[in-house]
Amino acid sequence: MAEEGLIALSAAITMAGTGIATAWAEKVVGGATVGAIAEKPELFGRGVTLMVLPETIVIFGLVIAFLLLGKIA
């Protein structure tokens, strides 16, 4: 039981950590991107691409959390 609790906690920490990391990274990139798009609207495509790149971090977190939860019988 204790082990299951630890696994669940690990999954939660994984999600929280990667979520915060993504949010912080997107904040930095997003701010700069909106500034750039205001000056040159045609940069939208490249801007969005750069801005959503950090999202992969939280997806990694999601996958790892699922794998961890899979360990709970």
Binding site: E55, T56, I59, F60, L62, V63
Partner: peptide, 12 residues
């Protein structure tokens, strides 16, 4: 590999 895992968002 990172690109592939990124598609996990479809499920997520």
């Amino acid at each position: 590999l990172a690109n592939m895992v990124s598609y996990g968002r479809l499920a997520g």
